[in-house]
Write a protein that binds this DNA or RNA. Structure first.
Lengths: 201, 201, 201, 201
DNA sequence: ACCTTCGGGACTGCCCGTTGAT
DNA sequence: ATCAACGGGCAGTCCCGAAGGT
């Protein structure tokens, strides 16, 4: 690995943390320079624009999230167990996923109507995560671990939505415990999917 | 009502829509001027700063949301009916609550680590809404419409989190129907609270 | 006297003090409004522009100075006595002449190369004061109270220059006593004019 | 010397002349840009703020004055000779010290009540110059060139005050010759310090 | 007649992301 | 990888008129 590539990687990691805090679109170059110790030219050798860096930094951050999710869902065990396993992954770690909120939630709300390329990037990650969840739930239904009443796609959506909503609540209210409570509620919800006659998806 | 007050109100309304789209902190003065047709001097006659305008605009937007919520929850009927009544309110109306996502979600993620006064403003609204939901659920439990297993505070949080998460998903994936699905799932969840033995809060 | 005229006079007086502090050209309208309690339109009823107000305010301030000078120099007594009498007038009074320095010195340095109309206004006052001093010194020479060596015009200039320089020194060094010292030195200088053979004017 | 340093120096020199004309606090960035040919971005590479530039420009201007003073006072000869030598230095050179008046006088009156950091900067220069003059006069008294009646500190103050006052008079009246006259009067005053019985300090 | 309210538009100091020469 | 420069954009203040109200 070349020295330039190592520098690039270091910038991306630093920027990822920074931009998740100060905004994926709103973080100025100067903040990145201050955090990395580089000078203007040094940064523009590795990225064609700030947009480019933001994209790479977001990919880095979301990639880390996806990696954790894939790893937790790939373990042995029943589908419910794997889902609980996943939820457990976000118990700690600074704040829910990273410091200052979930990069996906942050990027989604920020770029929603402002930056179409970035929005598509976020949408792709969201779709991927939803597909992962849906797959596990479908597996669980096939295996009889979840009732046939449970519609995998809908269940995955509900899970992910409540998760991200919980991140938001805990963040804005400055009450981290609130996220844990929602996590527990989701565990109960998943458990309820075992029995038929559940009215939820 | 004086002319100035009418102008101020018009600016606040325009800015509310604008800022919910382009960011409560990120929208430049120039965009507000373009949208209102005013010039700088005219705008700054009504607001001491852009921050001040943003605060008033957010209060306006969140106030509208809160008004709808209070109105829907104040109707006659059982607690479950009133909650379903509330959910129904967000079926249409541009997009979920307003065009371009929920102002509370947008403002919460944007100001979370960037603008403490605004974050407190958002937190106050969130707390108020959670309290409203909690009150209805508690009423329902007292009236026997909800199982004693349902913990009002936790249930309110879960409802609100899933709602906001749904707004985010529908927005970033550009699939409005997704919000409706989550809404339906929440209706089912509320219905499930009627029976004891529910594993959810 | 009409109410409007009284208001105008009040504005002029307030502005004179204000502008001598914050600059005869640099004081913004807003400061005048804040100090007078008026609103924009209320001010522009009495003055066609801020420039106009500044001119009137300076005339007011310099007029007060000139009045004091004329009064002190018009007393009975020998020429030296009248000059000492004049110097004594500036012993106290807030700071040398007014709070925050002599309006003539302030206006002279500020408008010197920036505002020709104002500079002429200041120059007229300066010329008038120099003429007054010169007249007294000439009287003294005629009366034999001053040596024939003393050139009235030159002596007046030196007196006035040292006076204003002393105001500047005392102001910038924040040592009011310094002005008194210079005043005493000038008294000694005037006394020395009585004898011939003095090398000074 | 790097290119940037050369540019910075050029800006400082240009700004010094400009600000002494148009005001050390009142000169806008745009005027500096116009005078230097730079654009905003280029200027702010060298100075953190306009205040910063003003400080450096004033230091440059006052430094030049102090350098001349120190050089003239450091020559061989008696104390009176050295003082006359100093006065001679300001005979020509644009106008007294620079075009548009003495930077010390201009800055002193302008910043007096408006900009405390700048005022302290000016005060430091003034104190330094007074100390230089006082030193020479004290030397002269020790050497018997000046009467024991002459109080060095007071004499230095009077000299400097009359000098600056003369700059002001010549400037506002647009009569450069007036400064020369005051200079001559000061030479006579210095000469008079040789004999005892002088009533001046 | 006097004053306020409202708006306009130019200007302020300063920061932005970006690029070429070095 | 730096250094120096660019030019457009930022939020906010300036002085001032014209309309409205008492």
């Amino acid at each position: 690995v070349s020295k330039g590539e190592r520098t690039r990687q270091r910038i991306v990691e630093t920027a990822a943390g920074l931009m998740n805090r100060s905004g994926w679109l709103a973080t100025p170059v100067s903040a990145v320079l201050a955090a990395t110790g580089l000078k203007k030219g040094g940064l523009y050798n590795h990225f064609v624009s700030l947009d480019d860096l933001a994209a790479q930094a977001f990919d880095h951050a979301s990639g880390q999230m996806v990696a954790v999710i894939e790893q937790r869902l790939a373990t042995d065990g029943t589908a419910p167990e794997r889902l609980l396993n996943l939820l457990a992954a976000f118990e700690h770690a600074g704040q829910p996923p990273f410091a200052s909120g979930c990069p996906i939630l942050n990027a989604a709300t920020e770029t929603d109507d402002m930056h179409e390329p970035m929005r598509q990037r976020v949408a792709a990650v969201v779709s991927h995560i939803l597909a992962l969840l849906e797959g596990v739930i479908r597996d669980g239904r096939t295996a009889g671990e979840f009732s046939a009443d449970v519609e995998p796609r809908r269940a995955a959506q509900l899970l992910f939505a409540a998760f991200e909503g919980g991140v938001m609540l805990a963040g804005v209210l400055r009450q981290p415990v609130l996220f844990s409570e929602i996590k527990n509620d989701l565990e109960a919800l998943i458990a309820s999917w075992a029995q038929p006659r559940t009215v939820t998806p």
